[in-house]
Design a protein around this nucleic acid. Sequence first.
DNA 1: CTGAAAGCGCTTACAG
DNA 2: CTGAAAGCGCTTACAG
Lengths: 336, 336
Amino acid sequence: MGTVDRVLHGRGEVSEKTRERILGIISELNYQPNVLASTLASKKPALFATLLPLPLSEEGYWTKPLLGIKKRISELRHYGVRLEIFSFNQTNSESFVTEADKILKLKPDGVVLAPFFKNEAVHFTEQLKAEKIPFVFIDSEIENAGQISYVGQNSYQSGFLSGKLIDQIVPQKNILIVHFAKEMDNQNHLVLRERGFRDWFSKRPTGTFNISTIEISETENGTWMDSVHAVIIEKNIKGIFVTNSKAYLICRLIEKHKIENIRLLGHDLLKWNVEYLKEGIIDYIISQKPEEQGFNAINKLFRNVVQKRPIQKTNYSSIDILTSENVDYYKEFSKS
Amino acid sequence: MGTVDRVLHGRGEVSEKTRERILGIISELNYQPNVLASTLASKKPALFATLLPLPLSEEGYWTKPLLGIKKRISELRHYGVRLEIFSFNQTNSESFVTEADKILKLKPDGVVLAPFFKNEAVHFTEQLKAEKIPFVFIDSEIENAGQISYVGQNSYQSGFLSGKLIDQIVPQKNILIVHFAKEMDNQNHLVLRERGFRDWFSKRPTGTFNISTIEISETENGTWMDSVHAVIIEKNIKGIFVTNSKAYLICRLIEKHKIENIRLLGHDLLKWNVEYLKEGIIDYIISQKPEEQGFNAINKLFRNVVQKRPIQKTNYSSIDILTSENVDYYKEFSKS
DNA sequence: CTGAAAGCGCTTACAG
DNA sequence: CTGAAAGCGCTTACAG
């Protein structure tokens, strides 16, 4: 048995002739190892680590991938899979580096990370590669960084689709793109969404549309509202594209100033967004399934690290179009 | 150990006092059984049966749920789960009864079925209940028939959403609903889709829209095209709602007669539908994920029968809105 | 380099 | 009614 086990896992210490004999018998019998028995007997626990933005609230976006992650981890309890969670501050790239260093010290068997700050993320993944620790990107990706997989959407294409939808429902094409973000340059997928969005309109004749962009880096106090409102009036804005999950902020602005006839498209199923969608203030929400993405990211690591199965490098998540009529069938997360 | 096992599975033959003592220790230790060890040791194979329409071709709709079903079954190999597939002819309710009888004779541990013919399906599920064989509905459902779960969409709501989408893109609201089906009465979900669709428009003032319905029971020869074409001309149809996966047939009609300015909404990601969607002849496809539904249906049985976990009775599948811009991210099926 | 032995956490007859 | 024994298909030291 010991010898057979050694050739099965290529652990050496087997003479060439017995190796061949065993391999022959394996293929002759079409032997398939029993994963259950294998993991039951081996008992060596795998340790995974996650590096994601700190969830800002119960209702915030980053709470959700974590739900999926924890769900899959709890299901894998009997496989001896453990998890350590590391969080960084979205507005502070240094915290990313600090936490990344902790992970390197921990030497986990696999990492799930959101490469939020590009430069810092590249540096981190270089180190992971050196340590031969496999990792999966979630939410946004860096191409060819050595990830075993990326779980998330194609941001450019999502923006392109958003362009089509807004175009379809806004007759007078004075459109405003709103980024609620600090350090736009580092937030690659917001940039890509805008690019896709503008490219949709680029096939129209110039002069038939009018697209402006505004960046809001601070929403703690209400002054941002005034500046956005000014732009809306000045440019006679009829459609707004919010590039991240903060569309509900625009809704509050619309309510406060009692603005009419503005069509609005935003992202992600935050509770407030859903409420405004149902009230008809938001017209479309483009969504990904963040719980499912968390779940899948861990699952990819599990299949790769524990089960040693081949996994697909990229399969982009679906870009879901939600309206008040179908949103109810997207809210639940259940893999059962 | 034997005694503990008996109280864990409520198999009796335990004195009340030891039962309570064991239960006490279990909760004190917060004991969680190890599923791996359990299934490894028990080795009693579960047998599942499916009763679905015979897939008419590689590209037909019913090929897909079967893919998901087989995928999940193959993953459950080590749990000793086996599958027997039964198929009936969609145009022949007797074949449904014949195959259902075979399943009853087989006495499987669980059944997945599409209750295509309502009367016959009710009769079958009554018998399953009598035999205490759990079953899961897929694709369409019969309410309160004793199913442990339903995997599929809310058809009424899907029709309602279709109404909104067509309404949004068709300026002149002369609309045609096309059913490609025999025995409409028995095909509950097509009826529901139509009802939802009409209800969307019912909130408009009468006279501002005009909706007709046509049923096509035979598409072997081309005569159906002439009758549909006649209606399109006569009623000056500008939007068409196809209630099942056969929208591509309307596309062929549109191509043949070189009709312009017709907006078209159909269902399901058949290869031909996708092609026409990308060409812009179909505007929207409402889709479910049939592979995933097959996968989930088996998974529900597995969790209920083998793992004896509680499962959710109904969580409707999402109603996906597909356009040429996001369709590519729905085509793949991969649970990995 | 090889293979017997013990053990992973359960289930299943079965002797008492 | 109770619990010792064998076994599910592997892995992991370890004696030879």
